[in-house]
Design a protein around this nucleic acid. Structure first.
Lengths: 264, 264
DNA sequence: TTATACAGTTTCAATAGGCGTAACTCGGGG
DNA sequence: CCCCGAGTTACGCCTATTGAAACTGTATAA
């Protein structure tokens, strides 16, 4: 296809790397070939080249491939670059202190929100929030909040193109139902969802905007369902919203009238 | 050249990614082209493709390229996989508590040691150790210690192939001088170095071995030169060695006679 | 021990896709 | 108004890449 700027070969490299996940961090050649849809010999050549520079390595024990330290290095550069993280830290800490529940900061890129910082609840029973985990658009709380505040065009593209996965029987997978929920989020300015990503967990998020008024992240509090009574969660929601607002302000965001009104 | 398993195209992708560093995390097309030695149109094509999957992104403000959140995700998988980190954590903590100085854990791969965990000194004046930073072989303390305990063949390859960089006027850049220092490290079982990576810092490290007796990591204590008197550093060295030994033991390593004797 | 299966590696010839040169657009500064 | 440098297209050459298929090696069953 004599089309745009797209190199098949480069895409294949990413396909191979993308085959590794947190759940299956070690893979054999055959697995990689299957997952990426690239014939084995070629995967072998790609891997060997990647190994050259430490992008992948082989576990000497299992002989399987896994992601290499070089990627850890690159990840650290990305992390260091996210000054939002640094900026937000103190507010996250005090939110955690106030709620005694797990607090998370998720940052948005074109592919979705990624959890970049977590302050864990001191309590024994707590929700696990994994730094580095990419969250779905349609389940949990951070994905929906960020989606809600994206520019309409982008949002509609995502709603149209994405095949939404079901996580529990409460997960919303229908685009129209989701659209409705998003409208609701924009009206309220925050979102609370229970049991739609993780059966027994509840989460609440509020959006963080940059100085241009673009959504860039969200703060969430997540907790076991059993622990949050209505009254308490009401109070937590306020904390979350205030935290998000404070961080937004710190980023140079001034709350504007049109946002308050934004409804569709 | 009709060599073995090596794909030019894949290598170029890595060349482009490798152009980004912690010091220069945002680059323009031209910079990337210069640094990687790849002509601009090709770099553009590579970047566009990488952007597709979130491996790089453009700072909307500066229009420059930077590494994307996808790499943060992959880095988090690597981090999660490093069980050495989990295993070592308690010992690092207690070492930090005992010394009140910055403690670091560096892990080895084929390309060198990478700092994967840091416990910061509580004191106001302290050495900055960056998680995710790749350390040089020839300067500082972790690089030399790990190099010292590598299999002779590997070590010699590194000594032969590497162009050692000078960081201060105390940095050892001559392979022969370095060889001598390494022999010394093997005899003592630890290493203390001052001012050869960072003018005013002193570091000490001891090696960590896996159950096969292979070097896999090192623990270090780093501190401002001014703070460590001879007596104190003597005492700290013991702590460091004990910590390293404890972690090694935890990994299944049994100290063997031949290691103690190993001198060349 | 031999037979079987499956992972990984090597070969090789055909060609799709990557490649660099060169020309062009765009925008900012002098 | 022109110049310069960054970024983007166009285009045709040609080689590095590619996948089928054959082969090796190794673990497991019979």
């Amino acid at each position: 296809m004599s089309t745009t700027y797209f190199l098949e070969g480069v895409d294949r490299v990413m396909k191979v790397l993308d085959a590794f996940t947190a759940d299956e961090p070690q893979l054999r050649l055959t697995d990689l070939s299957d997952r990426s849809g690239i014939p084995k010999p070629q995967v072998l050549r790609i891997l060997s080249t990647l190994e050259t520079r430490g992008y992948v390595e082989r576990d000497p024990r299992t002989k399987r491939y896994r992601l290499g330290l070089r990627l850890f290095e690159l990840g650290a550069i990305v992390r260091q670059e996210m000054d939002l993280r640094r900026v937000a830290q103190p507010w996250l800490d005090s939110l955690a202190e106030a709620t005694l529940e797990t607090v998370a900061l998720v940052v948005l890129d074109a592919l979705g929100p990624v959890c970049v910082e977590v302050v864990e609840s001191p309590k024994g029973l707590r929700v696990f929030a994994q730094v580095g985990r990419r969250m779905p658009w349609n389940a949990g709380t951070s994905g929906k909040v960020t989606l809600a505040y994206l520019a309409e065009e982008t949002r509609e593209q995502i709603l149209a193109r994405t095949e939404f996965k079901r996580y529990t029987n409460l997960t919303v997978t229908d685009p129209d139902a989701l659209r409705k929920e998003l409208r609701d989020i924009r009206r309220r300015g925050y979102h609370v969802s229970a049991g739609d990503l993780d059966e027994d967990a509840l989460g609440m998020s509020a959006p963080i905007f940059d100085e241009g008024g673009t959504i860039v992240a969200a703060v969430s509090v997540v907790a076991p369902l059993t622990r949050l009574s209505g009254a308490e969660s009401e109070c937590f929601v306020n904390h979350v919203c205030e935290t998000a607002a404070a961080i937004s302000r710190r980023l140079g965001h001034r709350r504007r009238a049109d946002e308050e009104a934004a409804d569709d």
